[in-house]
Design a protein around this nucleic acid. Structure first.
Lengths: 219, 219
DNA sequence: ACCGGTTTGTCACGCGGTTGTCACGCAATT
DNA sequence: AATTGCGTGACAACCGCGTGACAAACCGGT
């Protein structure tokens, strides 16, 4: 998905050469439509797009449950934008600054895809010591003893645990857990973290506060 | 690295003329040895080589972690080979078909080198000897031992480390770390540098003061 | 539709760590 | 020797976060 036709073709050619199945789109709306209809394993997204820019596309892709977990590699012209791209405001998985070599892009794609399949398995059920989180059953447990959590609390826990080790800002948590109702106070996150900690009891040690930044799930 | 001595000399002469430091090799094995011992910034590689051909050399260079990220320009006689050269199998960054002009070669080299420095930054985890800085985890560590830093201190460290080797004035640090315009005293930077040094302990040797100018992160 | 209990978002308050500032003294530069 | 620049210690204001409380929204059962 790119604005310059020849750049799109170059990427397409190299990816197909490498054995990947490729679908292209020449603007953001088309990209969103195709991605929703048939979610790909990975998305290469240019920031510079006609009409809707790559940032917007990225946000929408993350909001749509169908595509929210698809890895995204962003192509950007300015190095100054990387903080926005990776800083979980957008939540891209990787990025490249233009101009880039096809080889570099292939390396990134390979890396992300192997990581994705490695993470695919334990996604249904995550374990951290005595803490178990069963995603499909919607149950969290401490030493085989179930912990009664509300929907929001569970979603918050899952969101933190899935990105274990990585700091999540309040804004990014609001996006992922509350699916962006932008009118919500960031302090609301605090309250739910507190309730989570109360209910988790001893397992609350996994929930770490990074002052001035956000929260982190400690492994 | 070429098979015909006079062609090698021609390339070598032109590159040195342009101010590059050049090392040559007259066969594949020698090229690999030299490249591994002292990885260059860029490799110009002829396909036609005695014993091991350029394709083989290219593959081995890519497999060796020491040289896997070094850009490669391949010199080839046949236009038909370019797909193989640029594709995933070999992963060269660019190519030239013989005969070519020295000027053309210089242009390609320049383009790739400027691209390489632009791509150097995208790292979410930086290492300098025993000092590790993990951006998404928001953790700095010395010899695998975490260092407790506040939000501002961490941001200051990251800003300095990302531009390692380059001096940063107090004003530019204020802009990058504190983000808003300087309603803040420049001496405030000193205090935070001090606190950083205290907490970094032995790793503080990376933080250098350039009197009258600013601060620099030493590698 | 009604009602009780639960869930959820918001607010005010207070503590404690963080942060910006200043004065002082030393070191380097002139 | 004078001057400029930086490190150091101390301190006060501030801000971010945890906490308790509360009301609105929600949900399931009758």
């Amino acid at each position: 998905m790119d604005d310059e036709p020849e750049a799109t073709e170059l990427v397409e050619f190299n990816l197909k050469q490498a054995g990947y199945a490729v679908t292209t789109a020449c603007d953001g709306a088309e990209a969103l439509r195709k991605a929703h209809a048939q979610p790909p394993e990975l998305i290469v997204l240019d920031v510079m797009l006609p009409e809707m820019d790559g940032f917007e596309v990225c946000k929408v892709l993350r909001l749509d449950p169908v595509t929210s977990r698809v890895p995204i590699i962003m192509l950007t012209a300015k190095a100054a934008e990387i903080d926005r791209v990776l800083g979980l405001e957008l939540g891209a998985d990787d990025y490249l600054t233009k101009p880039f070599s096809p080889r570099e892009l292939l390396l990134r794609i390979k890396k992300i895809l192997t990581r994705a399949v490695a993470e695919e398995k334990p996604r249904e059920q995550i374990r951290f010591g005595d803490l178990t989180i069963d995603f499909p059953r919607h149950v969290a447990a401490w030493k085989a003893r179930a912990i009664a959590l509300t929907a929001t609390e569970f979603k918050l826990l899952v969101t933190l645990a899935q990105r274990a080790g990585r700091v999540q800002s309040r804004d990014s948590l609001l996006r992922d857990v509350w699916e962006y109702e932008s009118v919500i106070d960031t302090r609301t996150v605090d309250t739910h973290i507190r309730r989570l900690r109360e209910k988790l009891g001893p397992a609350a040690k996994h929930l770490e506060t990074i002052r001035g930044v956000g929260y982190r799930f400690l492994e």
